[in-house]
Design a protein around this nucleic acid. Sequence first.
RNA 1: GUGGGUGUAGCUCAGUUGGUUAGAGCGACAGGUUGUGGUCCUGUAGGCCGCGGGUUCGAGUCCCGUCAUCCACCCCA
Length: 429
Amino acid sequence: MKAGASVDLAPPRGMRDFYPHQAGLREILFNTWSHAARCHGFERYDACIVENLSLLKRKAGEEIVDQIYAFRDKSQRELALRPEITPSLARMVCAGWNDLTFPLKWFSIGQCFRYERMSRGRKREHYQWNLDVIGAPGPAPEVELLTTALSATEELGLGPAIRVHISNRELLSDLLAYAGIPAEHHAALFLVLDKRGKLSDDAITDMLVDSGFTTEAAAKVFELFELDSLDAVRRLLGRTTAALEHSAAVFEGLTTYGWENRICFDLSVVRGLNYYTGTVFEAFDVDRRFRAVFGGGRYDHLLEHIGGRPAPAVGLGFGDVVVTEIMNEIGCAPSVPAAADTVVGYMEADQSAIALRVAHQFRRLEERVDLAMGPEKARAFFGRANHTGARYAIYIGPDDVKTGHIRRKDLEQRTETTISLRDLTGDAS
RNA sequence: GUGGGUGUAGCUCAGUUGGUUAGAGCGACAGGUUGUGGUCCUGUAGGCCGCGGGUUCGAGUCCCGUCAUCCACCCCA
């Protein structure tokens, strides 16, 4: 940088630029998401990125509310960059209720923002694939959502590296009730239990005791986490419950789809958002070296909370940051295609018009063609053509114009094909 | 938020107890017979040594501050 006020060339903290290669990777990821969603019968929707702050504010206790990028516009309206899209979706569904036929299966890919401390896998902005089924009770929505997301991870080459940990908040409530803990304490307990594995069990016991639980009750809570299967839960309870049957049906459906090696029962999954009601799930790399790849759950009361009619709903969010990190880490990142199939260049300015017409013809044949911006020496042209990664190169000199034939070179196989200019452009000149 | 590491060319990094004019590899660009590419050879460009202060005759090097970044905690998506 020369004279003048120096500008910080880095993007703002937590924000990302995408150079062509990175943008290309992102495009492949987005296409994979879209493809998986459409294959499973989801319709695309989109919502505004700037949202009313009041819609996003919920009860305190959720970190997400403290991390909203909020601001006032010039009329003092309180607005925010959306931290997630689910509230906007709920708003759209409530507003459009009479025009919609249920159940809805909708997806979107949108940028979301959160002001927070950064670490690996966490930026202040990311793109998130959202899948939601609204208006369907029962286990089927969970099964469809998860099979859609799993097929996307499979498509990305991540299949065996990912496992979905599935739990159910209602089932956890059943177990806490069995342990003698009154229902009014369950919501607070979820937050504490979510820390298991991050804090020592002793520390969690202290937290529970501080909250008014007896040491015996805390010990009983820990016993619950020894449960590693739905059968173990059933044996402990000595009976079945609605939540237990629901979860069993989710596992059965996913097994029918053939995902039995990609899923596991894990009571420690609770999720940070407090609008989740029943099923909750998070997908992790099997070595647990990264943050969750995707997560979600059932939120049966969100719509009525924002003033709509009650409707059962299940949602899933799948961000671009962690999945990209894992793909880069295990080396299965898809290769970004070259910008062009064919590079067209020419030796002298006299051949520029011919080169332009040749490029035009190939483009009309649906080829992606990069035309030189000026004359180049042969060496420079082929060096550049090779560098672009294009498969074919057409280099036009005065002799080609004279003979009326151009040569199309296959850069990979080092072979040449001769093409008549007349055949190509219908014009011998 | 706590602790630690790292900031030198576009990238990866050297740089001696403080001592002339700041180094390499890769990449970029230009040449190596004015019509043929990845190798090879030569050359060129590219640096406020993160920023600010201090110590010193002298600081990339030592001290303080600050910012950025990474890691581990904390927390969570």
